[in-house]
Design a protein around this nucleic acid. Structure first.
Length: 591
DNA sequence: CCCCGACTGGGGAGCAAGTATGCACTTGC
């Protein structure tokens, strides 16, 4: 079931049509499954939504015939897409929306609460929002309702809590899209200097979720910029509108703050509004000790009030005796001390990545063909690229020995076309409850590289989870542990395991830990990367792409890796193929 | 609803886990 519990705000008329239609079709599928009837129909809409969301071409530019060439899009759905593109509405969806309150759809975003139970709650108790459900549980109103025992109530409350941890925050990827679109629009505004129009805040630091978006513009003409900002089509409500700061809430409820500064203060403002607050407190302490005062307008001599630095961040940091500190490090995790000591890490960047070691094709649950995935990878300039489709134990994917061996032949045949990129044939193995994987060693030896991940039995106890992960590390053919904690932001908690023991096992056995770049995963996250580093483990920043468009998700993985202080030397897919090859070979020797 | 292989209709994944219930249903993968 494709759901998105975290509201993904979109600008009305600048959102990518593919994503807008994906959301619409998903909503329709949800409403179909709530009202019951043909389950396959709802599934068909979900599949089409996914296919359109991941489709590389802008669907608004496709005619009816081309629309129907998208896999899982037939006549009916193509007609609906065309209807939406033409009219901005979908009649059948509007009808369903009238019949089912939005809050009922919201209910099925609670983990463990599906369409059947949501509809039952609505039908029998008139519950039409998450809040109303929580109140009903707390008021013991579910007692006697068929299918809702005490455990179910507990699970619902726990699920709601999980959702609320993500709170009103949205995913890094969604916030990035909105911020980039808004910045692009503001750069066109009268009085805006395009060179000094950026986003700051937690988004610039690349936190995994974002509460609101801070925008920063240097201008001598603030009023014009503010007016242009308010006039953007996504604005639903103007919260504050002043000379220096304007805040709006978008149609999807996301807050955007715009601050306009004099050009001479831009660097100080950027430093200040990037944060984090804890980092700013550190830098201010240094300023105070030097007899200086740091604010969003600049670094000043405390006594004379004379400005010492303000135009660029580099200047401000330099005047404090610090090198420029990358925003992803500004969390008060020792970056100021490291900067003072001249020991800031040389962080891994997207340019450092020489390949992607975890990707899928339409042989399993991917949306793009092997040829398309490989061509897109080559266009990214990779030196090597691994195709790692799901292994048989994830039975929903229906993988067989024959299919994966046929894919290997196909890949080898393709290799001749790519002189600069080495194609690797791999698989994403399933780590069973005991730590076993799908195939025996002799079959695994045929792969160039194996990722191994947990896809089931998420609730084993701590000892069992730890044991299974360590056993997977000890498998000589497992090169990478994929999305090690299996958490999904706002959806699923991480498994309970003694991760320090697992990290130590990775370091000992020469197994890389994945930094999965999928915006819903970002797994390992920054804090766990920092912990794993201490054990001497190495990492792989992978896209886990299920579509050609997902290969670019590595930007979020790289941001997360930077927040974990990773250098290229610690990331195996920045290495040359020669070095990576010997890394893989060394572990296999233990077989 | 889509796809496929047929030509008008059938199949689409199918199981594990958990809970409530008394052997069934829902959820999630």
């Amino acid at each position: 079931m494709l759901r998105n519990p975290i509201p993904v705000p979109r600008l009305n008329d600048v959102a990518r049509p593919n994503e807008e239609i994906e959301a619409l079709l998903n909503e329709y599928a949800d409403l179909l499954s709530i009202t019951g009837g043909d389950a396959f129909k709802a599934r068909a809409y979900e599949k089409a939504a996914r296919a359109i969301g991941g489709y590389p071409e802008d669907v608004s530019r496709l005619d009816d015939k081309k629309l129907r060439e998208i896999p899982n899009v037939g006549k009916s759905i193509a007609d609906k897409v065309a209807e939406f593109l033409r009219t901005g509405h979908l009649k059948v969806l509007d009808e369903r929306r009238t019949a089912i309150p939005a809050g009922v759809r919201e209910l099925i975003t609670i983990p463990t609460l599906g369409p059947k139970k949501a509809m039952q709650l609505h039908r029998e108790l008139g519950i039409a929002s998450v809040d109303a459900l929580v109140k009903a549980i707390e008021g013991d109103e579910l007692r006697g309702l068929k299918g809702f025992g005490p455990k179910t109530a507990d699970n619902i409350l726990h699920g709601v809590e999980l959702m609320q941890q993500a709170g009103d925050r949205i995913l890094l990827s969604a916030a990035t899209d909105i911020a980039e679109e808004t910045v692009a629009a503001l750069r066109e505004a009268t009085g805006c200097d395009p060179e000094h129009c950026v986003y700051a805040g937690s988004l610039r630091r690349m936190r995994e979720t974002i509460g609101d978006i801070d925008l920063l513009v240097a201008s001598e003409d603030p009023a014009s910029v503010m007016d242009a900002f308010i006039a953007l089509p996504h604005t639903a409500e103007v919260i504050a509108h002043g000379e220096k700061k304007t805040s709006v809430r978008t149609v999807k409820g996301l807050q955007l703050d715009l601050r306009v500064l004099p050009p001479a203060s831009f660097g100080a403002g950027l430093q200040y509004f990037t944060g984090s607050q804890a980092h700013n407190i550190r830098t201010r302490e240094i300023a105070v000790r030097k007899g200086l005062k740091l604010s969003e307008y600049g670094l000043f001599h405390a006594k004379s009030g004379r400005r010492k630095a303000a135009a660029t961040e580099e200047e401000v940091y330099a005047a404090l005796g610090l090198p420029w500190i990358p925003p992803t490090l500004r969390e008060d995790r020792g970056e100021v001390a490291a900067g003072l000591a001249g020991e800031l890490p040389r962080l891994v960047t997207e340019d450092d990545l020489r390949g992607d070691l975890h990707t899928h094709t339409d042989l399993t649950d991917g949306l793009s063909s092997l040829e398309d995935m490989v061509a897109t990878a080559a266009a990214r300039g990779y030196a090597y690229y691994a195709v790692t489709d799901h292994a048989p134990k994830l039975s929903m994917q229906r993988m067989t020995d024959e299919k994966i061996l046929a894919q290997r032949e196909q890949l080898r045949a393709l290799a001749g076309r790519y002189k600069k990129m080495r194609l690797l044939h791999g698989t994403e193995l399933n780590i069973g409850p005991d730590g076993d994987v799908d195939w025996p060693g002799e079959f695994l030896a045929g792969f160039d590289l194996c990722v191994a991940s947990i896809h089931s039995h998420f609730t084993l106890d701590r000892a069992a989870q730890t044991r299974r992960l360590i056993r997977a590390c000890e498998n000589p053919y497992v090169a990478v542990i994929g999305h090690p904690t299996t958490r999904q932001i706002g959806r699923r908690p991480p498994i309970d395991a003694d991760l320090d023991a697992v990290f130590a096992a990775c370091a000992r056995t020469g197994t890389a830990l994945e930094v999965n770049s999928h915006p819903h995963r970002l797994d390992l996250n920054d804090e766990l990367i920092l912990r794993a580093r201490h054990h001497g483990a190495v990492f792989a920043i992978d896209s886990d792409a299920h579509s050609t468009t997902h290969l670019a998700h590595t930007r979020y993985g790289v941001g997360t890796a930077q927040r974990g202080w990773l250098t290229p030397d610690e990331v195996i897919n920045t290495w040359t193929w020669q070095r990576l090859k010997s890394f893989l070979a060394k572990k296999r020797k233990s077989a």
